[in-house]
Structures are given as structure tokens and as C-alpha cells.
Nucleic acid binder design. Structure first.
Lengths: 184, 184
DNA sequence: GTCTATAAAGCGATAGAC
DNA sequence: GTCTATCGCTTTATAGAC
């Protein structure tokens, strides 16, 4: 089981890219088979729950990544400004400078939304909470910190949508730069 | 033909809501039949090209609406500030104060993207061009006008994603308010 | 113009041999 | 653990009666 688990985990990143690229509905088993090189037999061996389990595990992996690389630094950094700087750097890398969309954003907009509603909601809620707290520690009052948080999280998602729609990743990096500078 | 055309056009808004709610892949003919009350026979009579034609016509309708209600006022208003104010008001109504997502944004993120790439691209490109021009007429230099345009269009899209993800439409209206105030 | 019936293909998922 | 074969269902789309 532990071995199967380890084997399974190596496929999860590839599954993430597939869901990002095709959405939940569009990621058919034939596409998944093709891109991962795993046959249906293997896929259902690793993920008895089928596509839904695959997507759930991908969402868990994403949550873990953001907890470790974004939320924790925001919460725990002695210097809250450094935590925020680290967030912007991590986000720019994670979204490959605008060439990669946000899977949670994709799931939020399409009809997959209801299926994974709680994971989608807590992704943004956790992020917002950690960022607001860091902004308060930087000296902003509660209302300002909340407003800045919405501007930053919304700006990131919107920048990704625009970058993809216009087929111009630089829109995203420019947006990140302005959001960063806007904090002074 | 003109009669069929008129009859057809009455269904287009309903199709728009269906694609918004379910995405392109998720909007199956059975869903469309149920929500519009039209049988498959009627649907293929009005839209011989099937789903793809339905979505194409919906995108044309959206483009027309934004041309008339957003881009033209931005371009033609004697007072560019009034044109921008009008844009924010129209956008808040159009997206039902955060309860309605942007179909073009939905199509931009999922795998439908490639299918309707040019319509998706020109939706944002036309909007950006008109808004940048209006901002320049307000006195902003070219670089500032371009930056503000990206912040505003991205902010709108991001606000819609966040509102949907958090199941809290007010996130969108607060974002719009700040974008508006940010212009002074 | 709208209906029913149906075709052809793809879907997620399962079973069983190996 | 991976394969092939197959089930049952849904999908888009078409045909033809009315």
C-alpha cells in the first residue's frame, strides 16, 4: 500500500497539468491515459474512485503546496513584508510567469464548482486569511488589509485569465509587479 | 428565414446562461433541451451547426452588447470620465453584482479556449483598446493608461472568480468600487 | 417547426486473464 | 500491476413522420 501510494503520487503532478489544460469534464480517461502513459487498469488500481478521486487528490496536493510555500511563510515569517515578498515570488514561479492557469480558478468557474466547492472555497479563504493577517502585521488597519487582500488575490486570478485569453503571459507578470509595488 | 432568425434570436440569451452555468462541455444537449424547452429537432433547425454554432452566436451577441453598452460609450463620450463611469455601472449590472460569471472568462480558462480563441481574444483586446483610449483622454500618459486598463480588466475578471469561488458576490461589488475610486 | 426513433461514437467504470 | 474486452450509459447528430 505504501508502495502503491508512492507510485501513485508520482502521477499526481501530471494529472494536475491535465486538469488545468482540459478542465474536469474535458479531461477524459483517454486523454489521461495518453498523457500519463498509464492504462485504465493502472489508473483504477491507483485511483479506485476514478476521475473524482484523481481531482480530489490533485486539489489536496495543491492545497499542501500553498500551505507550505505561501500561507505558512505569510503566517510565520518574523518579517511580514518578507513573507509577502516571498508569496509574490512563489506565485510567479508557480504559475510559470503566466503560462500556467490556476486549477482552482478553472474549477471555480465551470460546472465542476459544485463538486469541489469546499476545496475551492478553502483554497481562497485560507490564502485570504493568511495574507490579511500579514498585512495587518505590516501596519495596515483591518479594513485596508481586507481590501488589499481582495485586490491581490483577485488581481492574480484576473491576470491569469487575461494572460490566457490574450495569449500573452506578460500581462500576468506585469500585474504581479504592480500589485507588489502597490504595497510600497 | 427572417422569421426563423427572429425566433432563433429569442433563445440566444437562454443559451448564454446555460453556457455560463455549465461551460461548453458541460452544456449537453439534454441540458439545453431541458432549460430552453426546445427539442433537439427545433434546436438543430435553428442551429444546423449544433453546439458550436450556438456558442458562436452567443459570443457574437455578447460582443455586440459590449460594443454598444461599454466600448462605444468609452470611445464616443464627450466626457471620457463619464464613459468610464458608465462602463462600471454597466458592468456591475451585466454581471448581476457578482452573481453571474463572465462567459468569455469561462471559455478562456477551459479547453474551449482553442475553439473560440479569436472571439475570446478580441473581447478583451477591444475592451482594453477602448478603455486605454478613454484613460488617455482623461490625462493619463500611455504607460499609466495601459497599466490601469490591465488592472481594471483583470480586477473585474478576478473579482468574478473570487466571488464565485467564495460564494460571496459582494467580493465583486467591493472590487468594482475600489477600481472606480482608484481612478480618483 | 417539432416530434420520435435511432445511429455512431465516446464516456466512465468494471471484470478477468495474465 | 497492467492488459484487453466489454458493459451500460450519455453524448452529438441525423432521419423521417407528422
Amino acid at each position: 500500500m505504501s508502495k502503491a501510494r508512492a507510485e501513485r503520487d508520482t502521477v499526481v503532478p501530471a494529472l494536475g497539468e491535465i486538469f488545468r489544460e482540459h478542465g474536469f469534464e474535458g479531461a477524459s480517461l483517454s486523454v489521461i491515459t495518453e498523457k500519463t502513459g498509464l492504462g485504465k487498469g493502472s489508473l483504477y488500481h491507483f485511483f479506485p474512485g476514478g476521475k473524482e478521486e484523481m481531482a480530489t487528490i490533485v486539489l489536496v496536493e495543491i492545497d499542501t503546496w500553498f500551505q507550505v510555500n505561501v500561507y505558512q511563510p505569510l503566517r510565520d515569517s518574523d518579517d511580514p513584508k518578507a513573507g509577502i515578498d516571498h508569496m509574490f515570488t512563489a506565485v510567479e514561479e508557480y504559475f510559470r510567469a503566466g503560462r500556467r492557469v490556476c486549477l482552482v480558478g478553472v474549477f471555480a468557474l465551470d460546472n465542476t464548482r459544485d463538486r469541489f466547492a469546499s476545496a475551492v472555497k478553502s483554497y481562497f479563504a485560507d490564502w485570504a486569511k493568511a495574507l490579511t493577517q500579514a498585512l495587518k502585521r505590516c501596519g495596515h488597519d483591518g479594513a485596508k488589509a481586507k481590501a488589499l487582500t481582495e485586490d491581490i488575490l483577485g488581481g492574480i486570478q484576473g491576470g491569469l485569465v487575461l494572460a490566457r485569453a490574450l495569449d500573452d503571459p506578460a500581462v500576468f507578470t506585469r500585474t504581479l509587479k504592480r500589485l507588489r509595488e502597490n504595497l510600497g
